[in-house]
Design a protein around this nucleic acid. Structure first.
Lengths: 122, 122
DNA sequence: GAAAGTAGTTTCCTATTGGAAACTATCTAA
DNA sequence: TTAGATAGTTTCCAATAGGAAACTACTTTC
C-alpha cells in the first residue's frame, strides 16, 4: 500500500531522528553514562577515584572514555600543581545539561526492574 | 586520599547505576531508538514500511531488533489474516513509557546541534 | 632501595555489532 | 509465466568494542 516513507519523511521527524543519532554518537558505549553520572554526583574526582567508583571499569576504557567526553566538552580535565601530580575530572556546565536525560534513563530502568521483578511489591 | 568508592557505594547510587545498565541493555544498538520512535509516531506498520521509514537499516538488523524489542514487550507483532500475509508492528503500552526518555534524547540532540553548528542563529 | 600511590599507555586477544548480498517462501496481478 | 509485493533468514565478512595484563614514569614514604 505504502511505497515510500511517510512518517519519518516529514521535516520534524527527520530532525528528531538526526538528533537521536547525534545524542547516541556522543553517549554510546558501556561506560559514558556511568562516568557522567558519577561526576554529576561527586564533582572533582581523580583518575583513581573514578576507577574505584565505577565498578568493573578498567584503566584502558576509563582513559579512552574520559578523552572522548573531554573532546565533546562534557567533562573537564585539570592537571593540579601537586606532587605527585594529580588530575581532577569534573562535569562541565554543558555536561550538566545531560542531567535530565540521565535521570530519565535511571528512572525508566528503576521502573523496568520493578515491572520485571517486583510484581509482588506494592 | 580516598582509597575506596564513596559516591557510588551509597545504596541510592548503586540502584541508579544498575538502572542505567538495565535501560542500556534493552536500548543498546544503532537502531532501537529509531524503531521505537517510528512506531510511536505511526502505529501499526509492516516490516517493509519500517524498512522504508528507517533510513539506512537493512533487513537483517530490522528483523533482529524487532525480535529483541518484542521479547522485551516494548513492541507487539501481529500476523494479519490477509493474503498475502502481512504483519503489523506496533508499540505496546509499556513501550510508550519510553516516550519521555526518547523525547529527552531527541531534545538534547537538537540542542547539541544548535550549540555546535548554530552559534550564529538567534 | 623497595613498596605503593599518582596517571595513564600499549599490546594482545576475543566477542559483538552491523552491513551486503543472496536466498526462501508465499501470493497476486499483468 | 514472469514480475513484484509480502516477510523475513542465512551466510560471509569487516570494523568496532572492550577486557586483562604488562608496562612507563614520576614521587613519596617506610
Amino acid at each position: 500500500m505504502k511505497k515510500h516513507a511517510e512518517i519519518n519523511a516529514t521535516p520534524v521527524c527527520q530532525v528528531r531522528m538526526q538528533a537521536i543519532s547525534d545524542s547516541m554518537s556522543l553517549l554510546s558505549g558501556k561506560w559514558k553514562f556511568h562516568i557522567l553520572g558519577t561526576l554529576i554526583e561527586g564533582s572533582r574526582l581523580g583518575f583513581m577515584d573514578l576507577l574505584r567508583e565505577i565498578d568493573g571499569i578498567g584503566t584502558k576504557m576509563l582513559s579512552k572514555e574520559l578523552q572522548d567526553l573531554e573532546m565533546n566538552n562534557l567533562i573537564s580535565r585539570t592537571v593540579m600543581n601537586t606532587k605527585p601530580i594529580t588530575v581532577e575530572y569534573s562535569i562541565t556546565a554543558y555536561g550538566k545539561t545531560l542531567s535530565p536525560l540521565i535521570d530519565e534513563m535511571a528512572k525508566w530502568g528503576v521502573n523496568y526492574r520493578k515491572a520485571v521483578y517486583g510484581k509482588n511489591k506494592k
